[in-house]
Amino acid sequence: MSSTCPSSRWGHVAVAIDEKMLLWGGKATREATGEKFYCSSDRIECLNLETSEWSRKRAISKIADSDAPHPCVHAQVGVVHNRDIYQFGGVYNSSCDGLRLYFDDIHKLDGSTLEWECIRPSDQSTPTGRRNHGMCVLGKKGDECLVVMGGFGTETPEGSHFIPYSKYPDRGWNNDVWLFSLRKRIWIPARCTGENPQPRSAHSFTAIDTNRAVLIGGSDGTRLFNDAFVFQLSSMEWIQVHTDGPHRLLPLAGHSTTVAHISGLGPSAIVLWGETDDNAVVSFAQLILIDSLQCYKVALAHTTIRTAFQSTCSLSRDDVLFLLRFGGTNDFKTWKPVALLDILKFDLKSDGLKSVSGTSSSRAPISLELESCPLPCQIADPHDAE
């Protein structure tokens, strides 16, 4: 392991490209003084998953300094498309004067050269600045778009459902949906039909295929949601996933959702970690079968500590799915980050879901050659009592 392990943090971005995990941004705490500080967006921390070594690389601006994101930002969202990482939103909080800046700009990081480019829309219509929103890439090849949903930030235009924050009524939670065409470089406000989700932030919004995405959980400041919705790009329609019964979704915010195609089950959303009502240590994942709209609990090979606002990315290799989690927090009073790097391994080629997991500190060696688990995880009968 390299000696340049990154600072523990929360509210950062992490993605996986070519056997590497890249992460940047977020907020951290100095252990000696308890002082909070921002992790710069121009320092890209790289974990080589083959050698288990960390390295730090400096991102550069493609043309001018304005091409790089604000150096102090957290709660932004990043997604990978064609080896490029698109980042939208985030917030800067000044501890000196209480200033809060909610960002509404898009930046693209070249996954090969680590060059930042500011994507400037060709028209004036843009979503309002926000943090802890959802974002994914949908659309047919050559006509892909970023789809942004919800978040917390400045007041949205008329026609959107907006819940103001009682302390600062000019900011709050929204449920609007915006599309950004990567080809035309324009923002398009979506007019959605169906069962629209309530305004929220800290939810997950994950692509299922080129036309669908699944939204799970989140918070509106007064409650944690335990609902799920499927968004269809072609019809701009929301369909609620009804999870009534003994295996309802846990109320969650700041969690991780990864969609995988599992043999015998089809496209499925694997939901892990996040803020809950009790933040208990758990030994199960939540699994939503997209095609049948059913929710199950799935036992894991070991217990795992819940953290919220961590960054999780996934990597597939030979029908095996690796989920990598870095950082996060489970202390919502001091927001102290957790020094944690967690690697979960799922076997997708056998019927059901088989998991093997290994956990290591951010300063300890990592191995992806984990021992195989001889027994598949049990998918609980939905008629069983919890």
Rank of each mutant, 00 (worst) to 15 (best):
F37R: 05
Y38G: 02
C39L: 12
C39W: 05
C39T: 03
S40A: 11
S41M: 10
D42Q: 11
R43W: 08
E45R: 09
E45G: 02
C46Y: 08
E50T: 15
T51Q: 13
S52G: 14
E53V: 14
W54E: 02
W54R: 00
R56F: 05
R56P: 00
K57H: 09
K57V: 07
R58W: 10
A59F: 01
I60F: 14
S61T: 12
I63N: 15
A64V: 15
A64Q: 07
D65Y: 12
D65I: 09
D65C: 08
S66A: 10
S66E: 13
D67F: 13
D67G: 06
D67P: 07
A68N: 06
P69L: 01
H70D: 08
P71D: 08
C72V: 07
C72E: 14
V73A: 12
H74T: 11
H74M: 07
A75Q: 12
Q76T: 15
G78T: 08
V79T: 13
V79F: 11
V80E: 06
V80N: 05
H81M: 01
N82I: 01
R83N: 08
D84A: 14
D84Y: 12
Y86N: 00
Y86A: 03
Q87N: 07
F88S: 03
F88M: 01
G89V: 07
G90T: 06
V91D: 00
Y92G: 02
Y92N: 12
S94Y: 13
S94K: 10
G98M: 13
L99D: 05
L99E: 14
R100K: 12
R100D: 03
L101S: 10
Y102D: 02
F103P: 00
F103E: 01
F103N: 00
D104K: 05
D105S: 08
D105K: 13
H107Y: 00
H107M: 02
L109K: 03
L114I: 03
L114A: 03
L114Q: 04
W116T: 04
E117L: 15
E117V: 11
R120F: 04
R120N: 09
R120Y: 11
P121V: 05
S122A: 14
S122F: 15
D123G: 12
Q124W: 11
T126L: 09
T128V: 05
N132Q: 10
H133A: 00
H133M: 05
M135L: 04
C136W: 00
L138M: 01
G139D: 00
G139Q: 03
G139F: 04
K140F: 11
G142D: 06
D143K: 14
D143L: 07
D143I: 06
D143G: 05
C145N: 08
L146M: 06
L146E: 04
V148C: 09
V148H: 00
V148I: 07
G150L: 07
G151A: 01
G153E: 00
T154G: 01
T156A: 06
P157N: 08
S160W: 12
S160F: 15
S160H: 11
S160L: 08
S160N: 13
I163D: 04
I163T: 10
P164N: 04
P164K: 02
